[in-house]
Design a protein around this nucleic acid. Sequence first.
DNA 1: CTGGATCCGATTTGATACTG
DNA 2: CAGTATCAAATCGGATCCAG
Lengths: 120, 120
Amino acid sequence: MPEFIYNNKLYYNPVEFAMDRIGGTWKMPILWRLKDKVMRYSELKKAIPRITHKMLTSQLRELEEEGFITRKVYAVVPPKVEYAISPRGEKAIGIIEAIRQYGIELMKDFGVDSADTKAK
Amino acid sequence: MPEFIYNNKLYYNPVEFAMDRIGGTWKMPILWRLKDKVMRYSELKKAIPRITHKMLTSQLRELEEEGFITRKVYAVVPPKVEYAISPRGEKAIGIIEAIRQYGIELMKDFGVDSADTKAK
DNA sequence: CTGGATCCGATTTGATACTG
DNA sequence: CAGTATCAAATCGGATCCAG
């Protein structure tokens, strides 16, 4: 069993390390949306409607600090800030796609249908 | 963007659904250890030393309730309980392996080495 | 040996107000 | 438009005790 320290935190395996970088409720959805286009803060906010302002901001900060996305500020009024995926972020897209496929299979296995909500 | 309800919780995408099933700090490590062998509670506890009693039991319960593992109780004194991976759990092993590989790549990318701890 | 229950502190998240 | 700060609510996790 590997065991290592990163950023003052003790990790026990690579899975835990990876999930700490791109896991959580919002990071993968954010990266996924930046997959093939640059987006402004407000566009991301609209694209992920239920995320709160605080969570979107904090998750973007963390993704930026760890090099998965880049942040470009335009010196205009009102402010314009564009977020784009970085090479490191692009490497994450593959595993996100894999998890996504697994999730779809799992949903079938559980008999969950994405039409359920609309049906309500 | 798909959107559906499972177990009274609203999900926005398959990734979130999958991570709610097998995510968190301990579920993948548990499934991973049951990959190719049946294990007793105490064996799991030893194999994942830093997990607490409370977390191990609660995570085993959830994995069992959602069909990723099976639980077999022997009517003996003292009690003997064996946990084994189920077909649904076996399907999870593939994605865990993929995440593991990604995690290893990510660690290299970050310059993290599993020898760090031992070096200390 | 296995596991449930309780207490409690720590961490996370949401709502809201404020700023250039 | 984008972002920060603050407070409160909710969730999570660890330690501990009891039980068959």
